[in-house]
Simulated scan of single mutants.
Amino acid sequence: MIVDSRMMLGFVLLLTSDKYWTHMKLRIILITLLAITCQTFAQPIKVNRFDDADEFLPKAEQRNKNKIRLFLRQQDEETLFKVTSPRNVTIDVISNVPANAEYGVIFLLGGTSVLSIVNERLDRSFSFQPRSRDYWWKNKFATFLVDAPSDRLDKNGIGDTLWRTGKDHQADLQAVVLEIEKRFKMPLVIHGHSNGAISNANIAQLKNPSVKAFIYSGSAFMGRGADILSRVEHTTPVLIIHHRSDRCSVSPSNGVANFVERLIAPEKVTLWVEGGVDAMSGDCGPFAPHSFIGREEATINSAAEQIKQWLHK
């Protein structure tokens, strides 16, 4: 191939010209800015939400002879805010801060932890913590109800308790706690129920100074990943709440003494619950002694009293 010498000379002059290199620098800067912008505004990872209310509630309503409250929709004074985790997922938090709130409680749910949220409002979440959160308000507690992360809103949610012991979950929970600290300046308590006990232990490892106590209720101390419960060194008091008739396979009441003995904390108190109504779900379900059905208000009043005693020392 014959190359015209004038063309070659022109190309060499272009490469050596200030104008060419100025243009190239601008292109590099623009490409870099575009990459940063795309990363900054990348959409959080999200899957479709699975709402199991239609699966559980009809059967429970048929068996609900005592007219026990089965769920509590979002109240007018509650708000929903979203927390973005470092791993590019969001976590919904349903919050209420009463005017007289002196303390705050963060709820880490059991089961799959996927809340029933419709049109950005809490709908028919029926597990122990969501259906009874208003009893905390009467005890001067703000409440923060934590949803599953946006990449785990399917039917399985975060039912995998081994996943709950990991760094991804810890990063999500830490992001939630830090955001709540910005919004609420009073002492915090973290309450994990059933599978949420594993989550509780995971975040306890970070020893957030604003967290003054932990509550473990119906703890899944015989599930996968439960060894984390005896590894974590709590630096604050721990309240253990359990129903004497709990027959759930991962939290049988006859195993509580051993569970409590293995917990590492400067102070431990066990609150035993008795009574309630006949179960309207399986042993590990939301409407069984495992979740204090029929004893919600009394249980929360006793828990709030113990927490206040610790915080007022």
Rank of each mutant, 00 (worst) to 15 (best):
M7P: 03
M8W: 15
L9R: 02
L13S: 07
L13M: 12
L15V: 00
D18I: 12
R27E: 08
L30Y: 12
T32N: 05
Q39E: 13
P44Y: 02
I45M: 12
I45S: 09
V47P: 04
R49T: 07
D51G: 07
D51R: 08
A53R: 14
L57P: 00
P58A: 04
K59M: 03
E61P: 05
I68Q: 15
L70S: 02
Q74F: 13
Q74W: 14
D76F: 15
E77H: 12
R87D: 00
R87E: 10
I94W: 06
S95N: 15
P98N: 06
E102G: 12
S116V: 14
V118F: 12
K138I: 05
K140H: 02
D147A: 07
S150E: 07
L153G: 04
D154G: 09
K155A: 10
G157N: 11
W163P: 07
T165F: 04
D168T: 08
Q174V: 02
A175K: 13
V176P: 01
K185R: 09
P187T: 15
P187Y: 11
L188E: 07
N195E: 08
G196E: 00
A197Q: 08
I198R: 08
S199H: 12
S199K: 13
A204E: 11
K207F: 05
K207S: 11
S210C: 07
G218V: 02
R224F: 11
I228F: 07
S230A: 15
L239I: 15
I240L: 03
D246S: 14
R247S: 03
N254Y: 08
G255L: 06
P266A: 11
V269W: 00
T270N: 08
E274I: 01
G276V: 06
E297S: 13
A298D: 05
A298N: 06
S302G: 12
S302K: 15
E305Q: 13
K313C: 13
